[in-house]
Design a protein around this nucleic acid. Structure first.
Lengths: 206, 206
DNA sequence: GCATGCCGAACGATCGTTCGGTGGGTAGAA
DNA sequence: TTCTACCCACCGAACGATCGTTCGGCATGC
């Protein structure tokens, strides 16, 4: 019975506004980090974006690193969720790779601020290094698939599979540098990236 | 006779070590920025990397932003130098594009720390916004070439040329995320990127 | 009356930058 | 050669500003 505290979670604050949940503040933070960068964004900036003072902001969040951690968690959950999908686990390597690339583009577009934060990490703190390690796991899963596809004779034999995998990831991840919601429809983006990655600029399936 | 001061320029310091030129300190700084990021790198870090104290460091450099400016200048000079080469100005659009991509990879590999700094800018200061504007010029020159190639019927007609150009730049620029000198021979890298960009993973030229 | 959301003020730490001084080497006069 | 004046790379210490974070108090609603 002493655990009845959880039932009253997500209570409204005094005024009629929406409550400041951790997730909502992580969203605010990630959006700000996307524009100015993590280091260059102060807690003053974040609290102002949330509409409260800096000290009030600390009433809801334990610190700056917790916001980073929350955002990175969300990004990594999205990416690893793709790897767990049935179409990413069954079938010929090339088809599985194709599915992962398409879904990864969707995740990048949908979770843009979070994934951007993940891809810009430098590994300066323990939290950053932990996230970088998990991100490396994801990249290595994709690299393994590229290697399998190469061994199956589906790709350029002249290009080192490791290098090819890095260029593949680089192409997909470069979306964060220019894509912004609403400009290009996500389905069009998915198709464009798939063509560019598998067929190149010149095109093979004429 | 009061102008004879210039003749004694580039004099050696007391000890037999090499002098601290602006270019040499920019190199030290860019290397440090590459690892930890610009904001996260302190002047204390830089001076320690140069082997002198922070105050001595300021004897040779006017400030942190001057180091950034120097590094960005070097990166932009390298990139625009590629655009000025004869092979980038004459011939069919696709051939010119191919040459630019190949040379751009070489510049990225050769000037890695400087270009990395350029590609990670957020536009927080006036200097950063100036460099971003010049970088946009470069990207637009490449985008125009992609558009020309598309109009000549050399590329996928289904993909928007603007998106294709961004993916192209993204693929090339993603090198800074993983390439480090000595791991992969530059000529191999150039070939791999060219194939990936123009023919894709699957390959078109049998 | 008590918990909770909010705030102003201030904390210590660290940042980029400045300043006064010092020591060794050099050039010029004796 | 010796003396002297100067220059310049170098340094320790401290500056003001800003950072992330903490604390004590005020108001509101159950």
């Amino acid at each position: 019975m002493s655990a009845s505290r959880e039932d009253t979670a997500a209570r409204r604050p005094g005024r009629g506004a929406e409550p400041y949940t951790l997730a909502s503040l992580v969203e605010v933070a990630a959006t700000a980090f996307l524009e100015r960068g993590y280091d260059a964004t102060s807690m003053e900036d974040l609290s102002r974006a949330a509409g409260i003072t800096k000290s009030s902001f600390y009433h809801h969040v334990s610190g700056k690193e917790a916001l980073l951690r929350g955002a990175l968690d969300r990004a990594l959950d999205g990416l690893f969720g793709v790897l767990a999908e049935p179409a990413a686990l069954e079938g010929p390597p090339v088809d599985r790779l194709r599915h992962i690339v398409r879904r990864q583009v969707e995740v990048l577009a949908t979770e843009l601020p979070y994934v951007t934060l993940l891809l810009r990490l430098r590994g300066n703190t323990e939290t950053e290094r932990w996230a970088l390690a998990r991100r490396r796991e994801f990249d290595q899963a994709v690299a393994s698939l590229v290697r399998e596809a190469t061994e199956a004779g589906a790709t350029h034999p002249q290009v080192d599979p490791g290098v090819a995998a890095r260029l593949l990831s680089g192409t997909v991840n470069s979306l964060i540098e220019w894509y912004r919601p609403g400009r290009v429809p996500v389905p069009d983006l998915v198709d464009a990236v798939e063509r560019q990655v598998f067929d190149g600029l010149l095109g093979a399936s004429g």
